[in-house]
């Protein structure tokens, strides 16, 4: 009797440990491709930079989204501008990432194909400054291939994030930067085994 009791005890403990592991199934989507572009336009100069090395994760159960952007991976056609962007404006040694954590403000039926305008409200951390923002964009979903595309267009007001432009450069750098962000996400199934074995 005592032996059986201890076996049950063991099974119970094992089940407990398994249940406490963060188990992710098909409702977690992670980005495979990303494309973030910003655009500064003034009468004198246009500045465009592209980042293809950022990451997004989405939880389709509670519609939460998290985005992490490596500031140093913004590529400029002009390397000198890239250097100034990192050194003088974004201070990317001090603030290497821009982070967004938010939630889609809409109930989405993940069994149906979607092509719908959405807004995402959440917290943006940029240049060490946190701000509540609402981003407007579009969500595409294909239930067959299980792929999600997020596409957002929004403006960043540099002063909001304490990014200062010297007065003499205001003719060259816009105070409001247009940003376009696109992410293609797919389910994170293959990661589940890695999580279970503790590799992640």
């Amino acid at each position: 009797m005592k032996a059986i009791h201890s076996i049950y005890k063991k099974i119970f403990i094992i089940l407990l440990i398994i249940s406490s592991l963060p188990v992710f199934s098909q409702h977690i989507y992670i980005s495979k491709e990303s494309h973030i572009r910003f655009f500064s336009e003034t009468p004198l100069e246009n500045i465009i930079a592209v980042n293809k090395a950022s990451n997004a994760v989405m939880n389709a159960q509670n519609n939460e989204i998290a985005i992490k952007i490596d500031i140093k991976r913004f590529e400029f056609p002009n390397k000198l501008m890239q250097e100034h962007f990192n050194e003088n404006y974004m201070e990317s040694d001090k603030y290497p990432y821009a982070i967004f954590k938010g939630k889609i403000n809409k109930v989405i039926d993940w069994t149906m194909p979607q092509n719908t305008p959405v807004s995402v409200s959440g917290q943006m951390t940029l240049h060490g400054v946190q701000k509540m923002v609402i981003l407007d964009g579009r969500l595409f979903f294909d239930p067959q291939s299980k792929s999600v595309i997020l596409d957002a267009n929004f403006n960043i007001n540099l002063a909001d994030y304490h990014i200062n432009i010297p007065t003499i450069l205001l003719t060259k750098i816009a105070e409001k930067i247009e940003v376009n962000a696109q992410f293609k996400l797919s389910p994170m199934i293959n990661k589940v085994t890695e999580i279970a074995t503790g590799k992640l």
């Binding site: 592991l21 963060p22 977690i28 992670i30 939880n59 939460e64 998290a66 992490k68």
Partner: peptide, 16 residues
């Protein structure tokens, strides 16, 4: 308790 705590931040942690 620990698994609850994890859930709040886990989306960001999934990014390698």
């Amino acid at each position: 308790g620990t698994s609850k705590l994890k859930a709040q931040d886990d989306l960001l942690n999934l990014i390698k």
